[in-house]
Design a protein around this nucleic acid. Structure first.
Lengths: 169, 169
DNA sequence: CAGGACATGTAAACCGTTACATGATTAA
DNA sequence: TTAATCATGTAACGGTTTACATGTCCTG
């Protein structure tokens, strides 16, 4: 399967959230809030915006100083359908998509939480299996102490995350 | 600053842990334990091993079936100095390096924990600042609920991690 | 009027994945 | 004997970063 591109959806989400944005403003966005969850450099942003315009996801509005991009009806559909796509592999997608959910009553919120819960329960089970398989006695722990530490830490981390997710559902 | 390559150090660490490994065995390693913390495909591994041999980090031993690689004295130095380099940017480096620390009494263990603690305290402070800046009242929370959720989740996550690190120090 | 921020763009290099190839060995 | 696993390699493609480039506007 060809790896899904994420950048265009991020740009679409940002433009949708703010109403209109120029390429420069988008690159500034990545230095602020959304920067904690995703990043892109201006050399990616400008060509991507051009492509999105070609595809009819956005339309542009030039005031002579900057070119601002606004989301089109098609863009709305594309964004929504991406948001509704099941989460997979990429760990950061959950945070990123959640960032774009503005309304606490949007049903997407619960859907995302449920999907993430599912993924994390699988991961938790997988890590527990590893722990059983690899560290079956004290000697193994002693001889691979760093591995033991991060594995138990990863398990704790998943547990915390699962608890948080359940709590929000 | 040019971004540091990590792959050669991972291969070096694996070879060092196991004594000797063929390219194929390394690719299998990534399907097992270390696969939870790092990954590389065989098309990266083989050329990288050749480069490492050219650089004198490893030497090879061919039994007609497979080519096995062993770490050299230079390789040991390179690995150790990489392990001692301060952690930075890349979040996964902490787990990865810890994976290579086998002896619980290796002073590197505490050094890594301290470095990670430092990084995480900075990140925690940064996220707290964001929370204060962006969500100064209930309206902001209501209008950006997804962002609020992941930001508070990220803060909780850092807090848990910091507690764990302190506990292990 | 100089330096920094605004604003946009392309080119090169780098790293990683997927696909393309090939051949030996082993187990059903 | 044929399919799976072992074993190694290169080529093509895609996405990201860094560097190269250029010009405007605003502020001290």
């Amino acid at each position: 399967m060809p790896k899904r591109r994420i950048l265009p959806y991020v740009l679409l989400g940002l433009i949708n959230n703010k109403g209109e944005l120029s390429g420069y403003q988008i690159s500034q966005e990545f230095k602020n809030e959304v920067g904690d969850f995703w990043h892109a450099s201006h050399s990616q942003i400008y060509p991507e915006l051009a492509r999105m315009k070609d595809d009819g996801w956005v339309k542009d509005k030039d005031d002579g100083k900057s070119t601002y991009y606004l989301i089109t009806d098609l863009g709305h559909q594309v964004l929504r359908s991406w948001m509704e796509e099941p989460l997979q592999d990429n760990e950061e997608l959950f945070s990123l998509k959640l960032y774009f959910v503005r309304d606490g009553n949007d049903p997407l919120l619960k859907i995302l939480l449920k999907q993430e819960l599912q993924l994390n329960q699988e991961k938790y089970a997988h890590l527990q299996d590893r722990l059983q398989e690899v560290f079956y006695n004290e000697t193994e722990i002693k001889n691979n102490f760093g591995h033991y530490l991060i594995l138990t830490r990863a398990i704790e981390r998943e547990k915390n995350h699962i608890e948080w997710l359940k709590n929000k559902l």
